[in-house]
């Protein structure tokens, strides 16, 4: 199996704050890889560093065999796309769904726009009726579906998911997660998914990395996590916290 994303000794520094302190990971092609940790542990920063949105101080990132430099070229964005956490903030308030989906096609000069937009909307379970709506005419779940359609329309091989369901309520969460699972299976995508919800990660991912304070704590498989076969105290605490309230 070939590797899709390799990150080695990645450091990200904002002004003087070290958000990532030498993180390394390896995501295999077609795999779904999870990043878990509390708020501020640097999991989202890792995704943003891969896409070029966060300033990389040192370390290397290799995506599909290509080492990334300071800037990303258009070919990179056709390979790697991202879905943001907050569906209320990730859609332009003055653009219809149609415009939103057309934009990536226009940037990359893709000709069969009409067909692709219809196909993308079908794929995420939104019919034609949604094509000319504005973001404010959609519910949270529908917005996130549009965001997923936008990420998929360039037919990337890697999808970075930054807590894609944490802003949605429980029933909608399940729908969106199932949609993501389905899309991944159909398109043989590689997922790198951030979440603080262990249940979601164990459901979606085969392997995962636990992070704390910008460092990797340990790397586990989903079954190890389910069986509580973990070696670090921090992970154990995290597991205990995720079991929720216990009546005394």
């Amino acid at each position: 199996m070939t590797t899709s994303i390799t990150v080695e000794g990645l450091e990200v520094v904002f002004d003087r704050f070290r958000a990532l302190k030498g993180v390394s990971l390896e995501v295999r092609e077609g795999e779904s890889y999870g990043l878990v940790g509390e708020s501020g542990s640097g999991k989202s920063t890792l995704l943003r560093a891969i896409t070029g949105l966060a300033p990389v101080a040192s370390g290397t990132i290799i995506v599909n065999g290509k080492t990334l430099g300071k800037t990303r070229d258009k070919a990179f964005y056709r390979d790697v796309q991202m879905v943001f956490q907050d569906p209320y903030g990730s859609l332009h308030p003055r653009q219809t769904v149609d415009r939103l989906l057309q934009e990536p096609l226009a940037i990359h000069g893709i000709a069969d726009g009409e067909k692709r937009i219809e196909r993308a909307l079908d794929e995420v379970g939104l019919g034609k009726g949604f094509r000319f709506r504005y973001a404010h005419q959609l519910s949270g779940g529908q917005r996130q579906r549009v965001a997923i359609a936008r990420a998929l329309i360039l037919e990337p091989s890697i999808l970075l998911l930054d807590e894609p369901t944490s802003a949605l309520d429980a029933s909608v969460q399940a729908e969106v997660l199932n949609l993501l699972e389905e899309v991944r299976r159909r398109r043989k995508l590689t997922f790198l998914m951030v979440s603080h919800d262990l249940a979601i990660i164990t459901h979606m991912c085969e392997r995962l990395m636990v992070m704390q304070n910008g460092q990797a704590v340990e790397t586990l498989t989903a079954s190890q996590l389910i069986g509580h076969r973990v070696s670090e105290d921090y992970t154990r605490n995290l597991l205990r916290a995720s079991e929720g309230f216990v009546r005394v």
Partner: peptide, 22 residues
């Protein structure tokens, strides 16, 4: 710094295009 501008950046749009159209 909003996510929707970030999303356009992640599509590979040029700064000129982002300023003009978004």
């Amino acid at each position: 710094n909003s996510d929707y501008i970030k999303a356009v950046q992640l599509m590979g749009a040029s700064p000129f295009r982002i300023v003009l159209r978004h």
